[in-house]
Simulated assay, not measured.
Amino acid sequence: MRSWKERVTHMVLFEATGLAIVIPLSSVLSGHDAGAIGVLAVGLAGAAMLWNLVWNRLFDAWVPTRRRSLAQRIAQASGFELGLLVATLPVVAWWLGIGLVEAFWLDLGFMLFFLIYALLFNTTFDHVMRRRLAQEGGR
């Protein structure tokens, strides 16, 4: 099982890199002000970091291996994004002053982006960690 230190490192890297990509991209695609999107994205990132810790600890307990299949990776990413979507939809609508339907489509866009991003990031992160742990074990 992964340590809390590894999970916190994972969480911070995941969110910082994701924000650097999603803020300008979502502002351009949605037509909403980058400042409003940025503040919303940072707030959502805070919620996502807490959910990330909880969800990935649970997922680690259910699937306790670093060598996960594509189906397991998809389940990990989908479960995280679905949980976050349900929790954040009202916040997105309120912050941007839009209806729930428009907020759903915007949140769905975030979800689809982060679903693909999470799949790639988590696979890369685990690959790097496996190599790092193998090097430490060989010393």
Results as ranks from 00 to 15, higher is better:
113 F>Y: 13
76 Q>C: 13
116 I>Y: 02
112 L>W: 08
66 R>M: 13
85 L>I: 11
75 A>G: 14
80 F>T: 11
121 F>R: 11
90 P>E: 05
99 G>T: 05
104 F>E: 01
87 A>G: 09
77 A>T: 10
86 V>I: 12
106 L>E: 02
123 T>R: 11
119 L>V: 10
80 F>H: 15
121 F>M: 03
103 A>N: 01
97 G>S: 10
72 Q>G: 04
73 R>I: 14
65 T>S: 14
68 R>Y: 04
122 N>E: 07
97 G>W: 03
87 A>E: 05
99 G>N: 05
88 T>S: 12
69 S>H: 07
83 G>W: 06
121 F>E: 01
69 S>A: 08
71 A>P: 02
110 F>E: 10
89 L>N: 04
89 L>E: 03
121 F>S: 06
74 I>F: 14
100 L>H: 10
122 N>C: 10
120 L>H: 06
114 F>W: 12
90 P>T: 07
111 M>E: 00
83 G>L: 11
74 I>G: 08
125 F>C: 06
123 T>P: 01
87 A>V: 14
102 E>L: 08
65 T>E: 07
76 Q>W: 07
85 L>V: 08
102 E>P: 11
80 F>Q: 09
86 V>F: 09
70 L>R: 09
85 L>G: 08
100 L>W: 12
80 F>E: 04
69 S>E: 05
68 R>C: 09
88 T>Q: 13
101 V>K: 15
120 L>S: 10
76 Q>F: 11
70 L>N: 06
71 A>H: 15
105 W>F: 05
66 R>Q: 05
108 L>M: 12
86 V>P: 06
118 A>H: 10
92 V>M: 07
112 L>T: 10
62 W>N: 08
104 F>H: 01
115 L>D: 01
107 D>T: 12
96 L>V: 04
84 L>W: 15
119 L>M: 10
97 G>R: 08
93 A>W: 03
77 A>K: 09
101 V>W: 13
123 T>V: 13
117 Y>W: 04
125 F>M: 05
74 I>Y: 03
85 L>S: 13
98 I>D: 02
107 D>K: 15
62 W>C: 13
69 S>T: 15
65 T>M: 04
97 G>E: 06
112 L>S: 12
85 L>M: 14
113 F>D: 01
112 L>Y: 02
68 R>S: 12
92 V>T: 14
84 L>T: 12
81 E>P: 03
123 T>Q: 07
100 L>C: 04
94 W>K: 12
101 V>G: 06
95 W>P: 01
63 V>G: 00
99 G>H: 03
84 L>I: 13
91 V>W: 14
95 W>V: 11
96 L>F: 01
89 L>V: 07
81 E>K: 12
120 L>N: 09
77 A>G: 09
113 F>H: 09
80 F>D: 01
69 S>I: 07
68 R>L: 15
113 F>Q: 03
84 L>Y: 14
109 G>T: 10
94 W>C: 11
116 I>R: 07
66 R>P: 03
78 S>K: 14
81 E>S: 12
115 L>G: 05
89 L>K: 09
64 P>E: 02
111 M>H: 07
84 L>A: 15
108 L>G: 01
103 A>S: 07
113 F>C: 09
104 F>M: 08
66 R>H: 13
115 L>K: 06
96 L>S: 01
125 F>V: 04
63 V>Y: 00
88 T>I: 15
62 W>P: 00
75 A>H: 08
